[in-house]
Design a protein around this nucleic acid. Structure first.
Lengths: 171, 171
DNA sequence: ATTGAAACGAGCACCGC
DNA sequence: GCGGTGCTCGTTTCAAT
């Protein structure tokens, strides 16, 4: 019964238990499919990984409870919503401003232009990934929210020509 | 009827048409909710934005067709799947290797450690965001897939202490 | 373009294994 | 812990506004 589709299968009856952190092959298969399509129905998901819908439902709920599955999010084309220009900005803080790094980073993350904030160890303190309407908006952001702040010692902006995003593959 | 929850409402009967690229207030409300919770049911989504389920369904389908909504993806905790160490790596290529930049970048994106590949304009050519098991795995990745390649002129690795991700807010 | 009703299909909980 | 069964609820289509 059922049809082998992409990868998976050989789960039912195959080797099971945890290769890492209490995740077995079935858990990993579920995560893989849900990263590929976060809106797949429970029935289709069960079919894809080769278990009963009830089992699938229980497992996914458990992954959520354990915090392995943090949530599901729509992927929106930045260009379609008027944010066709992307950039990464490396930010170095004044030595004395390090204690406020956390608060500063969270404030930046709350801005609509900001997509990612990386808190770094190394020569730079923060790396920002931003999406804006045009170069004028990019300059405005850097000037108003970075250069103008006393905590900021230095910034370096690079345009993003292309951004490839890949799922978190389990070990 | 219904309960005002977070923001929105005042859509039904309010001002409509496109503020940007053919997206009206209803479209933006839908995108906002779907970025917050990509697995919300159509019924609940309709209730949140204040329209009938059938209308909601039509609009979301249209956003998909137009390419505004690119997909839905599960958010998996990297630490829970054995990738608790994150880093960003700036890569500069040899001048002569630029024509192969695209192919090289796509090959990197296919590796399980790699979460994001940014193709940059500026002093560096590529910025990588990787998630690995430990520092040994990080070093192995850099040595085997970056330093060892003839196209690569220089790399600079910084550890990521914290990563904040925010939705793409429409203009 | 939005809606409500109607048919279809999926989600969810219970029970047996 | 996993899988089958059945009731309930959501999704999706379509005629009408």
């Amino acid at each position: 019964m059922s049809d082998d589709r992409s990868s998976h299968d050989a789960l039912t009856g195959g080797a099971r238990r945890s290769t890492f952190g209490g995740l077995d092959d079935l858990d990993r298969a579920l995560l893989r499919e849900l990263e590929r399509d976060g809106r797949i129905s429970n029935k289709d998901l069960a079919e894809r990984v080769g278990v009963a819908p009830s089992t699938c439902h229980t497992r996914v709920a458990a992954l959520r409870t354990r915090g392995v599955l943090r949530g599901f999010h729509a992927d929106v084309d930045p260009e379609a919503v008027g944010r066709g220009l992307q950039a990464v900005i490396a930010v170095r803080l004044q030595a004395g401003a390090r204690p406020q790094l956390g608060a500063f980073a969270h404030a930046l993350a709350a801005r609509p232009e900001v997509r990612d904030v990386y808190l770094l160890g190394g020569s730079e303190d923060i790396l920002l990934h931003v999406a804006v309407h045009d170069s004028r908006a990019l300059r405005a952001f850097v000037v108003e929210h970075l250069s103008a702040r006393r905590e900021v010692a230095h910034t370096q902006t690079s345009l993003v020509f292309e951004h490839l995003h890949a799922p978190t593959t389990a070990v």
